[in-house]
Simulated scan of single mutants.
Amino acid sequence: MRILITGGSGQLGQEWVGYLNRKEVEFISLPSADLDITDFEDTNRVLSNLRPDLIINCAAYTKVDQAEDEPEIAHQVNGQAVANLAQYCAKKNIKLVHFSTDYVFPGTKDDMEKLPDGYPEDHPTNPVNTYGESKLEGEKAILESGCDFLLIRVSWMCGKYGSNFVKTILQLAESRDELKVVNDQFGCPSFTKNVVENSWELIDQGKEGVFHLTSNGKITWYDFASEIFKQAGVSIKLNPVDSSEFPTKAKRPAFSLLSTEKIANISGVTLVEWEEGLKTMLAELKV
Rank of each mutant, 00 (worst) to 15 (best):
V82T: 11
I203E: 10
I169A: 05
G162S: 08
N84T: 08
T192Y: 08
K180H: 13
G13I: 07
T43G: 09
N21Q: 14
T214M: 05
Y161R: 10
K230M: 09
D69I: 06
E15G: 10
C158E: 12
A264G: 03
F246R: 05
K135S: 02
Q185T: 04
S134E: 03
L30R: 03
E245M: 12
V241R: 00
C58W: 02
E144N: 15
F165A: 10
D177S: 13
G146W: 12
V166F: 07
F186Q: 02
V269A: 06
V269I: 15
H75G: 00
L271S: 01
W274Q: 00
M281V: 08
D110M: 11
P106S: 14
V195H: 02
D69T: 13
E41A: 13
F224I: 01
V25L: 13
V272Q: 15
E121V: 14
I5M: 03
V272S: 14
V272F: 13
E245N: 09
S155G: 12
M281N: 00
S155N: 14
A225G: 11
S190V: 06
L202Y: 09
S199N: 06
F211G: 05
K135F: 03
E72Y: 12
Q185R: 10
D53Y: 03
E273V: 07
V77Y: 05
F229L: 07
E139P: 01
S256W: 05
N129G: 07
P120V: 11
V154R: 04
G268M: 05
G79K: 07
E208P: 10
I73L: 15
G206W: 08
D148V: 08
E201D: 05
V82L: 03
Y61S: 02
L150A: 01
L30F: 07
S155D: 12
C58H: 02
A141Y: 10
E174M: 13
A141G: 08
N183T: 01
V17I: 15
T43M: 11
V272I: 11
Q14H: 08
E275P: 11
D102A: 01
K262Y: 00
L150Q: 04
F99D: 04
S134A: 10
T192D: 05
F224V: 01
E70R: 11
A74S: 13
E113P: 04
K63H: 13
E113G: 00
N21W: 07
T248C: 04
S190Y: 01
F105K: 01
V210Y: 07
K109A: 12
L278P: 01
N183G: 04
E275M: 12
L170Y: 04
L47F: 06
T192S: 15
Q11M: 15
I203S: 09
D42I: 14
L136N: 03
G187W: 07
G233Y: 03
G233N: 08
K230L: 13
E174C: 11
F149E: 10
L20P: 02
I219G: 04
E275F: 13
G187R: 00
